[in-house]
Design a protein around this nucleic acid. Structure first.
Lengths: 103, 103
DNA sequence: TCTATATTTCAACGATTATTGAAATATAGA
DNA sequence: TCTATATTTCAATAATCGTTGAAATATAGA
C-alpha cells in the first residue's frame, strides 16, 4: 500500500453507487453476489453497475468469478484491511496512543 | 455517520494533494500547521491548497484556527475514527470474527 | 441452430473537478 | 497610513466522470 494505491481506492469508493456496492459486498463477507442481483438490490441500470464494478475491480476492492452466464462478485477483504491500516497507521508521528484511532 | 457523509469524506480524500494534506496533518496528531507551511511542505500553490483545505474542512476532516495572519489547520481525529468505524463495522453481516478487519 | 438471459462495451452528452492567474481580504509592523 | 505577508476568492479553462441507449459478447437450454 502507498499513497497512489490508497488514492485509487478512495476514488473507487468516493461515489454513492460504488460505495453502496462495496458495503453490500462487505456485508456479504466471504459470500458473493451476481452482478444482476446487485443491480436489482440497488436499483441501478445493468450497464451503469457494470462500469462501477469494473472501477471497483480495478482498484482491487472486489473480485469476480464467472459461473455460467453469471458473474459473482465479492469484496476483497484483505485489501480492505491493508487500506484501513494504511489510512490510520502513521498517525500522531508514531505515537498511536495519542489518538487511539482503532478503538 | 451515514452513507452520504462517508461518501463526502471519501471524495475529500480521493485526490492526491488532499490525501497528502490529510496524512501530513494526521501525522501531526493534535499539533497543527499553518496553510503556508503545508503548501511549502507539499510543493503546492497557495491558492490551490486553499481550495483543497476548504474541501477537507467542509467534509469535517480538518479544522482551522486563526492566529494573526496565520490559519493553523489540524486533523479532526474524532471524525476520522467515526469514519473508519463506519467503513468496517457492518461487515460480514454482523459476524466480525469472519474477517477480523481491524486486526 | 435459435432464442433467451446475463453482462459488458462503446460513443455521446452533460456535469463536476483541479489548476491557474489575478484580485481581494485580513493582519502585522513600521 | 503604508507596505509586506498570509490566505482566500473568483473566473476561466481543460480534464475527468456518470449515465444512457444501443450494440456486442458469453452462455444455457430447447
Amino acid at each position: 500500500m502507498n499513497n497512489q494505491k490508497a488514492v485509487s481506492i478512495l476514488n473507487a469508493l468516493a461515489q454513492e453507487t460504488r460505495f453502496s456496492v462495496f458495503r453490500l459486498l462487505m456485508k456479504c463477507g466471504n459470500n458473493e453476489m451476481a452482478a444482476g442481483a446487485i443491480a436489482k438490490e440497488l436499483g441501478v441500470a445493468d450497464n451503469s453497475l457494470s462500469s462501477h464494478l469494473n472501477i471497483l475491480s480495478n482498484a482491487g476492492l472486489v473480485t469476480a468469478r464467472r459461473d455460467g452466464r453469471f458473474l459473482y462478485y465479492s469484496a476483497s477483504i484483505e485489501l480492505t484491511k491493508e487500506f484501513v491500516g494504511f489510512l490510520v497507521n502513521d498517525c500522531c508521528d508514531g505515537q498511536p496512543e495519542i489518538c487511539n484511532i482503532l478503538k
